[in-house]
Design a protein around this nucleic acid. Structure first.
Lengths: 155, 155
DNA sequence: CCTAACCTTTACGTCAACGTTAAGTTTAGG
DNA sequence: CCTAAACTTAACGTTGACGTAAAGGTTAGG
């Protein structure tokens, strides 16, 4: 009873993976991957007839991008959700033709998203600055240590 | 009964601040500042005779540096504690003369700390890389939005 | 067809990092 | 001296982000 489209020669090489592989590829646990789906952070993937989650490489790529954004910006999963929702809505605009008549609305939306992007970019700049500060301090400490080591060596 | 050294002309301008001012200066709540002390993240400050915490600017500076390191490296408070303990132990070596005879031990310690610093620096580099990736993606999205806006403008 | 290895849902558990009363003490200003 | 505003400790509550265990279904290989 399980004729998952294991390899329908038509579709391009769309390898289907079960959850464990995805988890490994993203450095997460299976529980965490399911949890992310549960809270709507990632879209529910296809299922086998038996109900087993089947992912593609696209899912992995997306997840990894998310995780990077999360780590970099220090976003909570909720904030990340916002970020993604926005990104997806945008993608939707690209796919489906903008319903004629609602152009003004679309423009408003786009402008709004543009502002958000700018905000996030600003955030990355601040992060950069923070990193540089920390680096400066770390290098300072390292210098002092090295001097100290040399002193010990001489004595 | 409260003659805190409110302003003993001898000490240089060591303004003493109560917890609220510190909290504001660091963007924390009073509870959080006490909590950080509770878990040993910051050293217990002086107290007034009535038991009120009295901080100096040095406390604020230290706290802010910590918070930056935390944000940048994504450290937990525990990890941050390690980082600080190390930094302080190092400072102690600078103050007190190295007990003669224990030079080998000191050298080992210094080398170890040096390695840790290098590790942290490496971490900052990876963070930088992550940020650049995210920036690239954000800029990509922005570009697409702008093109889209221009299209709408033309129509 | 069998079975071990993997998958599923459900639900309770946990841990860090604080938030939030509560009940009492100190302190600065009038 | 008195009082409101800010401080104190103590203790329980909350939230996010999963961990873990139970009980059972699916799947691939022999």
């Amino acid at each position: 009873m399980a004729r998952v489209q294991k390899n329908n020669g038509g579709d391009r090489l769309e390898r289907l993976m079960k959850i464990e592989e995805v988890a490994r590829a993203c450095g997460l646990t299976k529980r965490t991957v399911r949890y992310y789906e549960e809270i709507g952070l990632i879209p529910p993937p296809e299922r086998s007839e038996g109900g087993i989650r089947l992912y593609t490489q696209a899912h992995i790529d997306r997840l990894n991008k998310m995780l990077n954004a999360r780590e970099v910006l220090g976003f909570s999963l909720q904030e990340l959700q916002q970020h993604l929702a926005m990104r997806d809505e945008l993608e939707a605009y690209r796919k489906s033709p903008p319903p004629p008549g609602a152009e003004a609305e679309v423009r408003t939306k786009l402008t709004e998203v543009d502002r958000l992007i700018a905000e996030h970019l600003a955030l990355t700049e601040r992060k950069m600055e923070g990193i540089r500060e920390l680096q400066a301090e770390l290098r300072g400490i390292r210098e002092r240590i090295r001097k100290r080591l040399v002193q010990l060596e001489d004595a």
